[in-house]
Design a protein around this nucleic acid. Sequence first.
RNA 1: GACUUUGUAGCUCACCUGGUUAGAGCGCCAGUUUGUGGCACUGGAGGCAGUGGGUUCAAGUCCCAUCAUAGUCCCCA
Length: 464
Amino acid sequence: MNKNQPTRPDGTRDFSPEVMAKRNYILQTIRAVYQRYGFLPLETPAMENLDVLTGKYGDEGDQLIFKILNSGDFLKDLPADAVTSMGSKKMASKIAGKALRYDLTVPFARYVVMNRGTLTFPFKRYQIQPVWRGDRPQKGRYREFYQCDADVVGTDSLLCEAEIILMINEVLGKLGVQNFQVKINHRQILNGIAEAIGAMDKFSDICVGIDKLDKIGLDKVMQELADRGVSGESIAQLKPILAFEGNLQEKLTYLTTLFENSPNGQKGLADMRAITQMLNSFAQAKDFPTDLHIDFDLTLARGLSYYTGAIFEVKVEGVQVGSISGGGRYDDLTGAFGVPDLPGVGFSFGIDRLYDALEELNLFPAEATVATQILMIGFDEASFAYCLPYLYELRQAGFATELYPTVEKKIKKPMSYANNRGIPFAVLAGSDEMQVGEFSVKNMLSGEQQRVKAGELKTFFATK
RNA sequence: GACUUUGUAGCUCACCUGGUUAGAGCGCCAGUUUGUGGCACUGGAGGCAGUGGGUUCAAGUCCCAUCAUAGUCCCCA
């Protein structure tokens, strides 16, 4: 093995042309839907000032932020004994003033705060960019990965929630995904449950616990909750709630009685009803899908984080990948930057997982991968030059066309090139063709070859 | 932060309990075909076995360290 073989950092990937074609297909689909719902594109820099990011993701999150060493002599303002006197955390802030973004939400919040004077609210933006996290890579988890966020800030209208459900359906519909579930729940319903079982003080523990339900099973969740100090009585009451089966209506009815004394829970139920009512009105439209794949899931919790209202997660059935999309409503996007009371709601597609799901379901269309359509080949210097004007014209006519860039003694070389690249047509020119102003056009798939007048190349390919 | 897996040709991998010049398939190059790819056949190039130590008469094979790798836990997308 070559001792100097270069490598990539752990947890990063190269995207080959074949993979990029498929990724772009996904991205274009998502982008088109976002835009049709009135979301505007936004990009923010890969790096942010470190203090913008720290403290927003908890202690664990802070450790996973990639910090960028100051340029120049980054040690010059540090005391000689800095390593022992300051500790790594304080020292990091002295020698690294910038860091790679950890998600798209915090940079977005920063952007909103900086531009709050000029933005028109409600502000709807989408943002598709990579983010970086310094944790151990695992299956489907990378240190550099893309997020595709769409958020609305500056309104608490539940229309946003309803539209998110529609957007998810449209994206997956266009991508050809048939079997999926848009799981939806509400933080205040979870709140109400905690209240109803008399464990309000353990609310966040309960959320973290039941979030793992589908992963580790009911018994282990119960065990974990006990370990986290939830009383046995509360756990006993929680069990039938999590196990409750029924459709959306039945669940709402069940919870209504459960939440008799829980204002939080009642607010959550009211939101859920409003969202479903709006979707029912949408359904009056012609050609509206008969099924929005909604699954009101009381066990959906989405970890801790900043969600305060409705929460979403999307699962594709029949594939190994976890959830491919998630999101929710938050009361206060920008509070950490000194601008309180700016509510919003957003969601995000995990395109790496979406990619895996489409691959597994074999849903990528063949067109997503084609590249060059025509390869021109000149046998000698004169015919090479003879090709050039037609190369230009074929491209102008919209055909992805290349001329093999060198004159080869053996024609085998450019022919293999066409073959390996999967280029369907070879256009050959030598002295014979030049003399009569023609080209030999070879169909690389069938092997057929025919003469075509030079001036008729464009129309010839237009029918192919 | 903890643990585990793997590291041999450009790629995917063999080499059984340590024993001569480390193999295969694919790919690459050349030829059979001096203006025609795929298919077939023939030939060829390409390796100090991740790196550094140790044990041994002898190490790709055993031991230690180190680096890389991808997976599990935590957490998250």
